[in-house]
Design a binder for these strands. Sequence first.
DNA 1: TTGAAAGCGCTAACAA
DNA 2: TTGTTAGCGCTTTCAA
Lengths: 337, 337
Amino acid sequence: MEKKVNSIKDIAKISGFSISTVSKVINNKGRVSEQNRKKILQIVEKYHYERNSFARALRLQQSNTIGIITPNLNNSFFSNLVENIEKILFSNGFITVICDTSIDSKREGQYLKKLKSQQVDGLIVISGSQTFEDNQISNFKHVVCIDREPEDIQKYCYVGSNHYSGARIATQELIKKGTVPSLFMYESDSSPIKERIKGFRDTLKENSLIEDNLSLISLEQTLDVDKTRFKIRKYLRSLLNKRQGPLGIFATSDTLAVDILLAAKSINLNVPNDVRIVGFDDAPIARYCSPELTTIRQNIQSISEEAVEILISSLQGKQLKNRYKKIEVELIDRGTL
Amino acid sequence: MEKKVNSIKDIAKISGFSISTVSKVINNKGRVSEQNRKKILQIVEKYHYERNSFARALRLQQSNTIGIITPNLNNSFFSNLVENIEKILFSNGFITVICDTSIDSKREGQYLKKLKSQQVDGLIVISGSQTFEDNQISNFKHVVCIDREPEDIQKYCYVGSNHYSGARIATQELIKKGTVPSLFMYESDSSPIKERIKGFRDTLKENSLIEDNLSLISLEQTLDVDKTRFKIRKYLRSLLNKRQGPLGIFATSDTLAVDILLAAKSINLNVPNDVRIVGFDDAPIARYCSPELTTIRQNIQSISEEAVEILISSLQGKQLKNRYKKIEVELIDRGTL
DNA sequence: TTGAAAGCGCTAACAA
DNA sequence: TTGTTAGCGCTTTCAA
């Protein structure tokens, strides 16, 4: 039987050429006579030689590996993003290491450390901490942040949806339908949420609508489903007392929107007659409720593509014309408006 | 400013010890005086030194990397599994490379190749092809399959839910509620589906219920949501004609179950009065419909833990007592039964 | 207890 | 056009 071949040295020995000649052939670099190239290639084939990527990475000081930091994979927005990015990177010859931090900055730190020692070539950070532990992230030369803007926006590249415009569209539509909209959100001071709040407020103002204590409703993120819906019902009742005509609600996520929808139904409110709802994301769940959810769609495909493009440009040392990119969103009008 | 430290050599220089002493400290191996150990550790800390894993992998001929092959990340069952496994592996010191095949065996092949040249130590295959291209998977010494049983069950380790028992429970409950159950499924000949069908049929038989042409309803997987629901409505109407009393439906996934729920509502059928439904998985969506879905919960946590445990044992060369493990499922009774 | 040095497989600068 | 060789950062054997 053919003996095990695992190094370029073995190939060199078998073929009778030197290591460097073989290396040139394998990497299609430098000049080797056509004849010898073929000979060597044949032997490579025959013995199923595969170059050792560690030795290569060690030598080249680059790994062809990209790290993705994600808060979790339970959320369809994140998992979709990760899925897309991973595919695009793979087709560009990169291996992806996915790090699920569970929104735990300690874990995030551990991952960053590991990624460092893995010497990833670049980093994609989805909705990461605003500021990183020990500023560990500055250890990485090529970083693209997605969704949540990093504090030091000069330093890192960024791609995200135009949350401001999304919020404006949603709010405007709700007003058009004759409601005085409220915004329902989970407690958060992330940049996307801030932008949405701003878009919401600006639109209210432009329409000469006055904010009151029921305009912005902020729910604790820790609550379980039942408690969340219980709270929502309470708010809905208050709103019913205070507002004329149908209620208008802009929810900052589709899951929250569906929670509201379900809460409304449970107190015999009809959607959209009594309550009009616009969500955010266009998550799969938007089509799995009844009526189907009207929502602002984030273009995950574009976000992924842009992020990878920027990252690869950065990796190639290209001058980046666009370090900061906002992707447009779109109203998907279904049954809750 | 502290100058950049990236090798054990730097640490050696700074600390005044030799490379090998530093190495011993870092790896907690060999004997080093307590005093010096502390000194070195301090410097390691201070300079945020992380050892280069390529050099290590090259030297040790092992990567501490595990590959996960998954059909996709859109499905909460898979993404949950991946998330859990990744976490457990990470806490065991492994890096995970996640490969999303989109159920495309060509992509699967490419990934397997890449993983091979990355020299992953082991492989976890979630719901992979029954048989692999070119039998590439036999290139890997340590493989654990999850969910879908590999053809050559002798060769690979396996962990999955007890689908048979899950189907039996669901069917039995439906019968208890006075229905003559039908099973709704997507076309598939994967082992989990086969087992569920068998469980369903066996339970029917034991209850002296005769199968007819509406007992097993198989939907094309390619259909979009609207078409799927359209078909479901058709089947529902046929069932209404043929069956006495409330309809009983066991759906092989929660998404499908919710499709059925929505289709039923859209033709003014009340759930659970007119139609009783049991799903499978206990996906998040089960709590985002109304009424909330009664379903068979797969214990993703246990599956993940078992799979990793088996993989690690295999990696450590331990004799495996259990190469084939079925995890029990559980009925979660909510509002659709 | 500590250190010197070989060598994992690779690439690339340089020599022939 | 081809070959020799240094060295990437690490672990480990063996000597001091």
